[in-house]
Structures are given as structure tokens and as C-alpha cells.
Nucleic acid binder design. Structure first.
Length: 261
DNA sequence: ATGACTTATCCAATAAGA
């Protein structure tokens, strides 16, 4: 099976690119984040022409996540166990069982700045994610993939000095990732197609992409048994090139797991 | 060149992103 995750920064604005990328890359299951549309407005008919079923969770202007699958899409769950809000719960997590794999697409809150109420919200949200993982892990191959808005190590940002006092690199955020790993998940680190860091995000401003001023904040976490079957994992930085890209690149992961109906 | 912000929304100035 080929699994993938991509923060598309508006599925409406990105639809032509998404369709081209699906047709070329041919993933079996795709986790999308920042669809920025309601579930009803998701272009499900367009992706259905390429063979994908859709489950979307969105409410309009911001956030929003979805799952696309060619191998079945069952037991859809919208939201985490006791998911906190800001102040109300936002559409940032959707889970489903696809071809025998239990898979979650997540968009972790940004946090804005340490000390901000949004930062406390981010940490609480990650705790709810950990609790959801703990409740579900075990019976089936398991994946949580998406935009975690946390760089796991200093090696996952272009310059640690540029992030002093900023979110995405603080010990509590990194401890929240460690807690997910302690619950039984493995960080499937993709290979970069170019340069030596598997960055997944580059700011639109100041030529960050051509200068490779990036961050690895999109992550693919799998249970240990599934992670052991990974034959390839890469960041598709080519999808960040050209006119009107998302500011994030997709991660593509091939696993030996065969489709289970 | 991979190239110097982009998105949706009360349609235009703003909030949000990280």
C-alpha cells in the first residue's frame, strides 16, 4: 500500500495540483490537512473520478482535514477523544479504517507563541491525540499522519537560532511527540529528494523554498509492526515547486501491508 | 531556475499561518 499525507493549504485553491499529483503518485490512502472548506464543499466528485472515496471534516475558512481512499473507507471518526476547543472544538482530526489500516489525518494547532492561550490549546490538543492513540492502538495496523506543527529535533529546522523563543521547537511540544512514541508509534522519517534534511514546509516569503529554509513539521507516525514494513518514504518536494503551490510538500510512504477488506 | 506570501471572507481589509 502507498500512504501519503499533505497539508494542501486550501483544497479548493489546490484542486488542479491535487488531481495531477494523485494521478501521478497514485497513493492508496491520502491524509489531507487545511482543506479550508466545509465537508459539503469538498470536491469529492473530482477525486472520485480518480477512484477515491472521501471523508471530510471541515467548517469553512480555516482548518479542516480529510481522508481519501482507493481501498475502502470505513468506521469514520471525526474528532479526538475529549478534544479541547479554542474555545469550541475545531475540525482538526479525522480517522478511518482503509484497507485494514486504521489511519488518522491530523492538523495540530499552531500555538502562535509560547505563553499564548493558543499554545496551551496546542499542548492540550496533543494530549487528547495521545489519549485517542492509546485507546485505539493494537488491533489493526495504525497510522497518525499530518501537520504536527512541531519540529522533532533542532536538526528539523533550517537554523535553530532562528527559533529561539518560538513555538514548534519547545521542550513541551517535543515531549508531546515523545509521548506519542511512548504510546507505541514510530516516527517514519522520509528521505529528502534533494539536500540533506527531509523538510516538509517552507514559508512562502523571502524565497524560503529555493534557499531551502525549511522545517520538518509534517510527520508520519506508524505502529512499530507497520513501520517495520516500510519499503520507502520520501518528501515529494517537487510538489512544492512552480506556480501556486501549497507551502507544505507531501510525504509518501510505501508499506508492505496488503489491502484487507 | 525550485525564485522573493497566500488563503477565505461580510469583495476589501483582515486574521491566520509557522
Amino acid at each position: 500500500m502507498r500512504l501519503a499525507t499533505w497539508n494542501v493549504n486550501s483544497v479548493t485553491a489546490r484542486l488542479p495540483r491535487l488531481l495531477d499529483w494523485l494521478a501521478t503518485t497514485k497513493p492508496d490512502v491520502v491524509c489531507l490537512q487545511e482543506i479550508k472548506c466545509s465537508a459539503e464543499a469538498f470536491p469529492a466528485a473530482a477525486v472520485a473520478e480518480l477512484g477515491y472515496e472521501t471523508a471530510a471534516h471541515g467548517d469553512g475558512r480555516w482548518n479542516g482535514v480529510a481522508l481519501l481512499s482507493k481501498v475502502g473507507l470505513d468506521a469514520v471518526t471525526r474528532g479526538l477523544v475529549d478534544q479541547p476547543g479554542f474555545p469550541d472544538p475545531e475540525p482538526r482530526a479525522i480517522g478511518a479504517t482503509c484497507g485494514g489500516v486504521r489511519i488518522w489525518s491530523v492538523y495540530v494547532p499552531n500555538g502562535r507563541e509560547p505563553g499564548h492561550a493558543h499554545y496551551a490549546y496546542k499542548l492540550a490538543w496533543l494530549t487528547a491525540l495521545r489519549n485517542t492513540v492509546a485507546a485505539e492502538l493494537g488491533p489493526a495496523p495504525f497510522v497518525v499522519a499530518g501537520d504536527f506543527n512541531v519540529a522533532p529535533t533542532d536538526d528539523d529546522v533550517w537554523d535553530p537560532a532562528a527559533f529561539v523563543g518560538a513555538t514548534h521547537v519547545t521542550p513541551p511540544e517535543r515531549e508531546a511527540l515523545a509521548s506519542l512514541r511512548e504510546a507505541g508509534l514510530v516516527d517514519v522519517v522520509p528521505r529528502p529528494l534533494k539536500y540533506d534534511h527531509p523538510f516538509t514546509y517552507w514559508d512562502y516569503r523571502a524565497g524560503a523554498f529555493p534557499k531551502n529554509l525549511g522545517m520538518r513539521i509534517d510527520l508520519f507516525y506508524a505502529d512499530a509492526a507497520l513501520a517495520a514494513t516500510v519499503s520507502d518514504a520520501y518528501v515529494d518536494r517537487d510538489a512544492r515547486k512552480g506556480k501556486t503551490p501549497s507551502d507544505h510538500a507531501p510525504i509518501v510512504v510505501d508499506v508492505a501491508q496488503s489491502v484487507v477488506a
